[in-house]
Amino acid sequence: MAHITIDGQIVPFEAGQTVMEAAMAAGVYIPHLCHHPDFTPHGSCRQCTVTLKAGWNITACTARAAEGQEISNNTEELNLVRKRLTQMLFVEGNHFCPACEKTGNCQLQGVAYHLNMMSNHYPQFYALREVDATHPDILLDRNRCIFCNLCVRASHAEGKDVFAIAGRGINKHLVVNSESGKLIDSELTADDRAANICPTGALLVRGKAFQAPIGQRRYDHHDIEEVTLGGSHGG
């Protein structure tokens, strides 16, 4: 069977598979946030940046596996790059983990733990982001949005197109498809995949707070690597 190597480990792949798909199937964890096995790869968070032996970087979620590729993944250098990218997400938005209902179940937090992130490193942006609490069943807190596009992709797949990411550069923001721009006037319902797929606490289905006490949540005792490879993907 055709194979690539990741950090020296032989990883078989089937034609058409991405590096990420092949790695996951072989039990090799490559950190990621915008990737979800059920949706078209996006390649925007850049967490899954890996290095080819030829010297350049690719994103594992968008690059097709090719026979003989020799890939570096779990290296000190790449993990520092990933930590810096994660810190960028933390300073760009407003993430106050202790006050967030998603704490312990948050993939951003999980990746930050995994990468041993101990500080924000960069200066905070203190962006003004709008909270939309109009929907009786769903809360949208844009302070926590990391532009992974998963809710956009999920809602598109559901035929509702409730979300889009608008704006340019650092002023990007999530917009809602309703005349008022508010969630309550959109077609989103709490059982939509789009309402449940957010890797952070930007989209929360109401009425579930503290169902699991803090300290007993997904990433509280298990590293995101273990959780991801165990098949219990967030959302």
Binding site: G43, S44, C45, R46, L85, M88, L89, V91, E92, Y122, P123, F125, I146, F147, G167, R168, G169, I170, N171, K172
Partner: peptide
């Protein structure tokens, strides 16, 4: 560049603003 970044990927969206600062 910070002004013209499309904002799609993390390093360019956030990084160009950090670089500017």
């Amino acid at each position: 560049f910070a002004e013209e970044s499309c904002g799609f990927c993390t390093p360019c969206r956030v990084g160009t603003s950090l670089l500017k600062k």
